Computed example of a mutant assay.
Amino acid sequence: MNHARLTIALGLAALTAACGKKAEAPVATETNEAEPAATMSGDMGNMSMAPDANAAIKAKGHGTVTAIDKAAGTITLDHGPIPEAKWPAMTMAFKAAPSITDAVKVGDKVDFDLSLKGSDGEVTAIAKQ
């Protein structure tokens, strides 16, 4: 039984090392308890936390207004790449408040701010170039 545990612990350590990650402490064979983890030190005040999957991403873009549908509350933009969303240049419709759709017309070149959540996007600010 101890041989099987040792084999599993060594195998997991090898797999973890192969992934470039620090291996967890192996299980001690006599006590069946994990060794204490190493203490973290240093200034971690600048360490960023993983983003919340449900949080909205704020992004900026540049493009041209190709359509406005006030009834549906959308504005269609032919925009350049949007790095924050990892999007290439494309044409797509976004939700937009009436104050946004009233501020521009088809053909206007614009700078805009987006709020992105999942695959949904909303133009939150827009300005003619």
Rank of each mutant, 00 (worst) to 15 (best):
M1I: 05
H3E: 14
R5I: 13
T7F: 14
T7A: 15
I8Y: 11
L10P: 00
L10R: 13
L10Q: 12
G11F: 13
L12H: 06
L12P: 00
L12N: 13
A13L: 07
A14Y: 07
A14H: 05
L15H: 06
T16R: 13
T16A: 14
A17Y: 08
A17P: 01
A18M: 12
G20D: 09
G20H: 06
K21T: 11
K21M: 13
K22M: 12
K22D: 12
K22N: 12
P26I: 05
A28R: 13
T29Y: 08
E30F: 15
N32Y: 15
A34M: 06
A34K: 11
A34P: 04
P36K: 05
P36Q: 04
P36W: 01
A37T: 02
A37M: 02
A38I: 06
T39Q: 04
M40G: 00
M40C: 00
M40S: 04
M40D: 01
S41R: 12
G42Y: 14
D43R: 07
G45N: 12
N46Q: 14
M47E: 09
M47Y: 10
M47N: 09
S48M: 09
M49P: 00
M49F: 07
M49R: 09
A50M: 14
P51W: 02
D52W: 04
A53N: 11
A55T: 08
A56N: 04
K58A: 14
K60G: 10
G61Q: 03
H62F: 11
H62A: 12
H62W: 04
H62K: 09
T64R: 08
T64F: 03
T66N: 01
A67H: 03
I68W: 10
I68L: 11
D69Y: 09
K70D: 15
A71K: 15
A72D: 12
A72N: 09
G73C: 10
T74E: 03
T76G: 07
L77W: 00
L77Y: 02
D78L: 00
D78P: 00
G80R: 01
I82D: 04
P83D: 15
E84Q: 15
E84H: 11
K86F: 10
P88L: 03
A89N: 03
M90N: 03
M90W: 01
T91N: 01
T91S: 09
A93F: 01
A93Y: 00
K95H: 10
A96I: 02
P98V: 03
P98K: 07
S99P: 00
S99Q: 14
S99T: 13
S99Y: 11
S99D: 15
T101A: 14
T101F: 09
D102C: 06
A103K: 03
V104S: 05
K105N: 05
K105T: 09
G107P: 03
G107C: 09
G107T: 06
D108W: 01
D111G: 08
D111L: 08
D111Q: 07
F112E: 06
D113T: 10
L114M: 05
L114T: 01
L114C: 02
S115H: 05
L116C: 06
L116Y: 07
K117V: 12
K117N: 15
G118P: 07
G118A: 10
S119C: 05
S119A: 14
S119N: 12
G121I: 02
G121V: 02
V123P: 01
T124S: 13
T124N: 11
T124K: 09
I126W: 03
I126K: 07
A127C: 02
K128Q: 02
K128R: 05
Q129S: 14
